[in-house]
Design a protein around this nucleic acid. Sequence first.
DNA 1: GGGGAAGTTTACGTTAACGTAAAGCTGTAA
DNA 2: TTACAGCTTTACGTTAACGTAAACTTCCCC
Lengths: 128, 128
Amino acid sequence: MNKKQTYSIGELAREFDVTTRTIRFYEDQGLVSPARRGQTRVYSPADRVTLKLILRGKRLGFSLAESKELIGMYQPSGDNRHQLLALQNKIRQRRDQLEQQLRDIHALQQELDDAEQRCVDAMNDLEK
Amino acid sequence: MNKKQTYSIGELAREFDVTTRTIRFYEDQGLVSPARRGQTRVYSPADRVTLKLILRGKRLGFSLAESKELIGMYQPSGDNRHQLLALQNKIRQRRDQLEQQLRDIHALQQELDDAEQRCVDAMNDLEK
DNA sequence: GGGGAAGTTTACGTTAACGTAAAGCTGTAA
DNA sequence: TTACAGCTTTACGTTAACGTAAACTTCCCC
């Protein structure tokens, strides 16, 4: 009853709607390091999660380098105090950036509401 | 008591912390069209708002082309029904995209909370 | 009237994030 | 056994969003 689930590059590409080229590119950039069976790449559930994080980062406007940083945050390999402090600083920066994005999004949503309303009004005018 | 406020390209560049090259590039791409006094560009308050919208779009991960679309939404020059319907569809798409971003942000915030907590815990362990 | 400081155009350079093509191995279903 | 579906590497091409440099006007100040 062990979950020895693995994925091929094609499966993941289909699931996340990207090309295999893209996934290999992320590997080039050091964002994932799948196992190999011979030549062929074999992805673990953990690799899959990493891909998910990268793509979410993209949706949030992060560069691959930034996403790499973010993903690195989840395993503080920093075994000394200095590393941990640096890590906390980065986390704080991210949080500030996210807050700004939230403000931006709310403002934009408000404007879309207005724009849509104007749309509806204009169409109602055409009715008459 | 009329507000005949105008801005030079340098003023706007300083205010928004971008280069003048950037602002001229946006003009090249048809995102702003400042007036001219001779050769020199003269920006109106409306131009300034447009710039603001572009930069907010950037923070949200929109391309310049997308921001241009978004900005175009605010003045429905579409005087016929078909235009208005197309407009509403675009607005709906934007809204969906924003909702996704919101979900992404909340998830990321949660993870940052966890990561920070692990940081604090690890530092406390070092204290002992 | 000789510098700056700030504006202009023109044009080539750069980085990120892949796309696209070529050429080859590999299992398996007909 | 061949045919193709899916995997591999290598490598050049592409797009967006500017950077950077050169060469030039214009205004203002001392």
